[in-house]
């Protein structure tokens, strides 16, 4: 039998790519969150952590390259699945009433696009210093990049803090369906692992939401000391 398309481009192949890249991205989001939470440990801790990453040099660029590749694969697969699924039902129902599916599941493309747009904005903000440029590039007492001051000064501006909160809420919906969905796609069937396909996604998404949203919120409410920012 001659195959029309390579397995990786089949429906299951595309979904598998989405699941694998999605879980890798989740891993990044969790590590990134743990790194960011060091803002609560004060200027010294956070700036030292930032310097540690900056000093990684070549390793940092390999990690960035890998992350970008994973991100692009995830997005490209998403558009492919969306296109296949749209083509599969050219005539819509006059009345279609969802019975069990969730809002999160039905808005994956929308939440994903908003999160992707946020990632670009986030990089322009804290990595490249295009957004809120006035607070970017200062040095602390030890001559390190003052990440702490940049974050605190940034989030004391409510439009910036609000945009981060909105993006994290959409990330919550995206992860709530996406994480559980990934385990189903990867073929988890053992009853002991059934939790991975159930509440696990929502719990992980909730942890990410609370962890990430707390930073702009506590800073906006003035709970994180500014020091000399």
């Amino acid at each position: 039998m001659s195959r029309k398309r390579p397995p990786l481009l089949s429906t299951i192949g595309t979904k598998t790519t989405m699941a694998v890249t999605g879980l890798l991205l989740l891993g990044f989001v969790l590590v990134h969150m743990l790194g960011n939470l060091q803002v609560y440990a004060g200027r010294e801790k956070l700036n030292a952590y930032a310097k540690l990453l900056q000093d990684a040099g070549g390793v940092l660029w390999v990690a960035r390259g890998g992350l970008l590749a994973v991100f692009v694969l995830h997005v490209v697969s998403a558009f492919r699945v969306a296109a296949m699924n749209k083509a599969a039902r050219p005539v819509p129902y006059v009345s279609a009433v969802p019975q069990v599916t969730s809002t999160a599941a039905r808005t994956m493309l929308l939440s994903g696009l908003v999160v992707a747009a946020f990632v670009v904005y986030h990089v322009l903000h804290f990595t490249l210093g295009v957004v809120d440029a006035g607070n970017h590039g200062h040095l602390d007492a030890k001559g390190r990049h003052d990440v702490y001051g940049m974050v605190v000064a940034g989030f004391r501006q409510w439009p910036i803090a609000l945009s981060y909160v909105v993006a994290q809420v959409l990330l919550f919906f995206h992860l709530a369906h996406g994480v559980s969905s990934a385990f189903q796609t990867l073929g988890v069937t053992h009853p002991r692992l059934a939790f991975l396909k159930g509440r696990f996604g929502t719990v992980v998404a909730g942890v990410v939401l609370v962890g990430n949203v707390s930073i702009p919120l506590t800073i906006l409410l003035g709970l994180v000391p500014c020091g000399a920012c």
Binding site: T11, A87, R106, Q184
Partner: peptide, 13 residues
């Protein structure tokens, strides 16, 4: 796939 059915996005409908 060749018949034009869509991909599963785990709605469980």
């Amino acid at each position: 796939d060749a018949e034009g059915f869509g991909a599963c996005t785990n709605h469980y409908e």
